[in-house]
Simulated scan of single mutants.
Amino acid sequence: MSRWSRPLTPHRSLCRLPCRHAAVTDATRRNSRRPRVRPRPRRERSAALNCYDCQTHDQPTTAVATCSACGAGICHDHARAVPHTLHRLTGMGVATKPRTARRLLCGTCAAAETSA
C-alpha cells in the first residue's frame, strides 16, 4: 500500500502529506487536561466611605449615600432629600411624570441649587 493510498485521518486530510502527528483520541484528551489553578486569595475590604462634611470637622462618620451632584459621601445628618421631577420626551400632552423622585444632595449642593 503506497503512502498516498492510506485512509486519511482528520489531521492528514488537512496537510495531505504523511506526518508524525498522532491522531487525537479521547485518551490523549483526558491526559492533557490543564493543571488546576489555585483561586486567588480574597482581598480584605477597603475602609468604608466616610462623610465628607464630618471628615472636615475631624469626626469620621460612615457615609450612607453619595451626593448626586458632586459625588461626595454624606452621612444621615448631612443628607438632604430633594424632590426631582422626571421628564419624558413626548409629542403632544403632559411631559412630566405625576410623581416626583427622590434626589440626595449634600448641604453645599442643596444650597447651591436653591439659591437664585
Rank of each mutant, 00 (worst) to 15 (best):
P10V: 05
P10E: 04
H11W: 11
H11S: 14
H11C: 10
R12G: 08
R12T: 06
R12V: 03
R12L: 12
S13A: 15
S13F: 03
S13H: 05
S13K: 12
L14I: 12
L14S: 13
L14H: 08
L14Y: 06
L14M: 11
C15L: 09
C15W: 02
C15M: 05
R16H: 14
R16V: 13
L17A: 05
L17D: 01
L17M: 05
P18M: 02
P18T: 03
P18F: 02
P18L: 07
C19T: 06
C19M: 06
R20W: 05
R20E: 09
H21P: 02
H21N: 07
H21L: 13
A22W: 03
A22S: 14
A23S: 12
A23M: 09
A23D: 10
V24G: 02
V24Q: 04
V24P: 01
T25M: 00
T25Q: 02
T25K: 04
D26K: 12
A27I: 14
A27H: 13
A27M: 10
A27Y: 11
T28K: 09
T28M: 11
R29V: 15
R29C: 15
R29W: 05
R29K: 15
R29G: 03
R29T: 14
R29Y: 06
R30Q: 11
N31E: 14
S32G: 13
S32A: 15
S32L: 14
R33M: 07
R33Q: 11
R33G: 09
R33N: 06
R34Y: 02
R34W: 00
P35S: 13
P35H: 07
P35K: 13
R36E: 08
R36M: 07
R36G: 11
R36V: 10
V37K: 13
V37M: 13
V37P: 02
R38D: 10
R38P: 06
R38A: 11
R38Y: 01
P39Y: 01
P39D: 07
P39A: 08
R40L: 14
R40D: 03
R40E: 06
P41W: 09
R42C: 05
R42T: 08
R43N: 07
R43V: 12
R43W: 02
R43D: 08
R43G: 12
E44Q: 15
E44V: 15
R45I: 00
R45Q: 12
R45Y: 06
S46F: 04
S46L: 11
S46V: 04
A47I: 06
A47D: 05
A48G: 13
A48Q: 13
N50L: 13
C51T: 00
C51F: 00
C51H: 00
C51N: 00
Y52P: 01
Y52W: 09
Y52F: 09
D53K: 09
D53W: 03
D53P: 03
C54P: 01
C54V: 02
